[in-house]
């Protein structure tokens, strides 16, 4: 039997491998190296020891950013694990026109975060749709400062993230629902279980693994939030820069003459550890649940 020459597989693998080494692996090592320097966006930089990490400890903006990230994650988690599942159950049945609804529900996902954030910025404007309608209905007397109050701005960005994520997680749940045993539902229905009890006792246990996976995805992406907060706050990070996220701080330090890539790299390392924690916790939860 004719066999391939030893280098043939490598010829095929090399482009992808080169990309992996140059744009993934080397940058992860270089991030650590850079974090001990004061490199500038335009070049240069010298070894500064642990100075960047000392600065981290006293960085008030970072403290706000971390608090915002935790709030972001805690609020997003319940909404984005539950609502998309309900949505998936709703679009699972093949009614006429269901493809249209599925596609439409997915539209916010394919739109750029910049586009949807600009749309929401207009809707949440002092004179925008939400304030206009609420005033018309007499719910409020003056416009609510959705985009200028520290906490309302954070809340607006969180709702935007939830709204944009619905379709994405719906699709993942939809795929998982296809694997939930049909027979279980039928048997339970014969035994007189209503739709609600079947949902709780069959659907939810059936998609449990997916649910854990989705929770990990939600937590990590909530901790990495950038565009929504950046656009809604006009790039300024809210009043006094207290609506920044960690990624927004990284971006701020990456530019201009004031920029400091060394410090931005130190922030990147903080971001790495922050995102690893929920992954480990939830992965552990998954293992324990599987044993029980």
């Amino acid at each position: 039997m004719r066999y391939q020459r030893w280098f043939t597989p490598w010829v095929l693998v090399v482009p992808a491998l080169a990309w992996l080494l140059v744009f993934n692996l080397w940058p992860s090592i270089n991030t650590v190296i850079l974090s001990f320097t004061n490199a500038k966006p335009l070049g240069g930089g010298t070894f500064v020891g642990l100075r960047n990490f000392e600065t981290l400890l006293h960085d008030e903006q970072l403290r706000w950013a971390l608090l915002n990230s935790v709030i972001y994650m805690v609020v997003c988690l319940p909404f984005l694990t539950v609502l998309p599942l309900l949505l998936a159950v709703l679009v699972e049945k093949k009614l006429p026109g269901i493809t249209f609804f599925r596609t439409a529900f997915y539209t916010p996902v394919v739109a750029s975060a910049v586009v949807v954030a600009l749309i929401w910025q207009w809707i949440l404007d002092d004179r925008g749709l939400v304030n206009g309608l609420a005033e018309k209905l007499g719910v409020i007397s003056g416009p609510l400062p959705f985009l200028s109050d520290q906490w309302l701005l954070l809340l607006s960005a969180i709702s935007l993230t939830i709204w944009k994520g619905l379709g994405y997680y719906m699709i993942i749940y939809l795929a998982a629902l296809g694997n939930v045993g049909r027979e279980l539902h039928e048997a339970a229905a014969v035994d007189g279980a209503g739709p609600f009890r079947r949902f709780v006792h069959i659907t939810i246990p059936g998609v449990r693994g997916t649910m854990i996976l989705i929770s990990i995805l939600i937590s990590v992406s909530a901790l990495r939030v950038f565009s929504e907060l950046f656009i809604l706050s006009g790039g300024k990070g809210g009043p006094g820069g207290r609506d920044n996220s960690v990624v927004m701080l990284i971006q701020q330090y990456s530019q201009g003459f004031e920029g400091n890539l060394g410090y931005a790299s130190a922030l990147s390392i903080v971001l790495f550890f922050v995102t690893v924690v929920p992954m480990l916790v939830l992965a552990r939860l998954n293992r324990r649940g599987a044993e029980a």
Partner: peptide, 21 residues
């Protein structure tokens, strides 16, 4: 294994050194 390992790493973490590269 190398390809799998990079999936754990959020892209934003390496974005600065990617820029340097």
């Amino acid at each position: 294994g190398l390809f799998l390992a990079t999936l754990v790493l959020p892209g934003e973490v390496t974005i600065i050194s990617q820029y340097v590269t």
